[in-house]
Computed example of a mutant assay.
Amino acid sequence: MKEDILGVRSSFVASDATKLDLTPNALSIILPARNESGAIGQTVARIRDLYPEAEVIVVNDGSTDDTATIAERAGARVISKPYGMGNGAAIKTGARAAQGDVLVFMDADGQHDPADIPRLLAKLDEGYDMVVGARGNGSQASMGRGLANGFYNRLASWMTNHPVLDLTSGFRAARAERFREFIHLLPNGFSYPTTSTMAFFRSAYPVAYVPIVAARRVGRSHIRPLRDGVRFLLIIFKIATLFSPLKLFAPVAAGFALLGLGWYGYTYTTEGRFTNMSALLMSASVIVFLIGLISEQITNLTYKREG
């Protein structure tokens, strides 16, 4: 039994090599916020009550309401942006400014319960480098978003060869030195959870999931289903080419090859000749495969770990 700076008893056992040394100021809790005056005060106050020794950073992403003032009064360190740069940009700002060895990211809209933080830290103490709060079906904001997240999770699981239970959850804890390795890869928009998760898997940093229940947010969501749904789909393809390009290019190349062979078989049977369309499809197959192969080599250099 060990008591850490959060005043929470830990009953788990971990090796000395992986056990967290949560001395004062070792934990930083980062909340990106944009026009969250309805929830930010209560959220920060609850974090302060539960974890008085932790560093609480609110990154005010160009809010036009009293978000910054309320957060500061509640006891947070506020970093204000002159205009909205995006959720991912706020996360990067908070991660760069944080002093802690462990970073906890959570939403400022009241969806995430600060009482779940010790569960994330417990998993980190078992040797994981990132722990994600995985929302259940009952925690999804809508059926459409739940179906979309399920699709993203299955696609990411296929690409990483690891089960991904929640690719888009913004409630997570990570070792600061590991997370900062990938700051340059994180987009400024809403997909920082997706990119950071895939980057950790690609670099062989262990990732764990802890089930959580996300409450209904306070206020209006900043996500627009149609516009951001298309954007997330594009992000998935970007992630595929960034983290595991052959898993995207190889099936496409195989599809072109099968079409070319099928068309050749048809034209040879009916006309006894090899057509330009067959040649075009087979050439496209070779070109797409070679692009995927080159992309894979570039990816391996990008995620080459030193030492």
Rank of each mutant, 00 (worst) to 15 (best):
E3R: 14
L6K: 05
V8T: 15
F12C: 11
L20F: 05
N25V: 02
S28T: 10
L31M: 14
R34D: 02
N35G: 09
A45E: 11
R46D: 15
I47N: 02
V56S: 04
I57V: 03
N60T: 00
D65W: 00
D65R: 02
D66P: 01
T69N: 06
A74K: 07
G75L: 05
N87R: 15
N87H: 11
A98F: 02
V102P: 12
L103H: 02
L103A: 07
D107S: 12
A108M: 02
D109T: 07
R119F: 07
L120G: 09
L124P: 10
E126C: 11
A134R: 08
S142A: 14
M143R: 08
G144P: 01
A148Y: 02
Y152C: 03
Y152F: 13
A156V: 09
S157A: 12
T160M: 15
N161T: 12
V164R: 13
L167N: 09
F171H: 08
R172S: 10
R178D: 13
E181P: 01
I183Q: 12
P187D: 06
P187F: 04
N188L: 00
Y192W: 14
T195M: 10
Y205T: 06
V207Q: 08
A214W: 03
R216D: 05
V230P: 02
F232S: 12
L233Q: 06
L234N: 14
F237P: 08
L242F: 07
L242G: 11
L242M: 15
L242I: 02
K247P: 03
A250T: 09
G255M: 07
W263C: 03
G265Q: 03
T267F: 00
F274R: 05
S278N: 06
I287W: 04
F289V: 04
L290Q: 12
I291R: 13
G307P: 00
